[in-house]
Design a protein around this nucleic acid. Structure first.
Lengths: 166, 166
DNA sequence: CAATAGTTTCAAAATTTCCTGAAAGTAAAT
DNA sequence: ATTTACTTTCAGGAAATTTTGAAACTATTG
């Protein structure tokens, strides 16, 4: 397989992969493109490679920066902005965990907390509260585990944890 | 908060939560509804509670059964089918991991494998292969970790692992 | 300060995903 | 063998999401 075929396949797969996890397909593709780029790319480079509009490129680049997966790079003497992706996979995953934890897990925990105070003496109310508490207990544990994982450094995770769990 | 308010809030939140993880909103809501139900529900019960069509209810129920999160229950003397959700959160999460691993992680590993054989002596090709290998290495480790997690039983996870990682 | 070189925003269009409902399918009961 | 009581399928419509592109904005340069 040559580079151009491989690149296309990677861009398309990473897009589909992201898509099935609720991440905008184009955002995932821009991320993929930057991850395999040997140097920083400009918005124009990205627009051309992925055949997308300037608006689309801009919005998704900003989102990637927000997630801590991409950063801006200024080149001396150049007026336009260049973009580079974080290439350390452990950092990539860590940032994704941090974001999704903040945007999805933590709000859910808050909702579960409110819901566990539902009143009522019917079997329906009893089962509702029981199940909400079960979900909350589990989610709370997942939340702490992720906290620990995020605080742990790459070496610890890849070394100790992986060996331990095997 | 009373039951009806709580239920509505839970159904809507669980739907939104699923949605942001690439799971059909209605599928997540049916799952939520069955999780908090004290007894098995019929397709008609679900259609009425969520105000959805028979086709929609049927398709998403089948998908939930596929994922191992819901099962059919036949009542003696009743011709119609009833549905119950798995209520043990550890089993729920385990089944979700198994499915997503099979449908998304494993195909990705296969693609990465193919991509790591890209040929070329340009810096672009070198960086491409380097990065694909980095992603593959990390994904492979994640895959093994999930394997172990899935084989481990609930008690082990909640007891040993949680304490260990804290 | 006008021109130039970019970036950002957002309403409308395009695309994708989801849902409906009616028709077809299935199987138990009579 | 026909009716009854359901379940399943899927084409077309509805809804949600994504993308475009042009106008507005910002900042550097001459």
């Amino acid at each position: 397989m040559n580079l151009s075929e491989g690149k296309d396949k990677f861009l398309q797969s990473w897009g589909a992969y992201g898509s099935s996890w609720g991440v905008n397909r184009t955002m995932a593709q821009i991320h993929a493109l930057l991850m395999i780029a040997p140097q920083a790319l400009s918005a124009d480079d990205i627009m051309e490679e992925l055949k997308i509009s300037r608006g689309n490129a801009n919005m998704n680049l900003r989102a990637l920066i927000d997630w801590g997966l991409v950063s801006k790079e200024l080149k001396a003497g150049e007026r336009k902005e260049f973009f580079v992706a974080e290439k350390d996979m452990w950092k990539v995953v860590k940032n994704i965990i941090i974001q999704r934890k903040k945007k999805e897990l933590e709000p859910m925990l808050k909702v579960l907390d409110e819901l566990s105070s539902v009143e009522g003496d019917t079997p329906e109310a009893a089962e509702f509260v029981r199940m909400i508490k079960e979900i909350k207990l589990f989610s709370g544990k997942a939340d702490s585990t992720l906290d620990t994982l995020v605080k742990a450094d790459s070496n610890w995770f890849i070394g100790t944890f992986m060996k331990m769990i095997r």
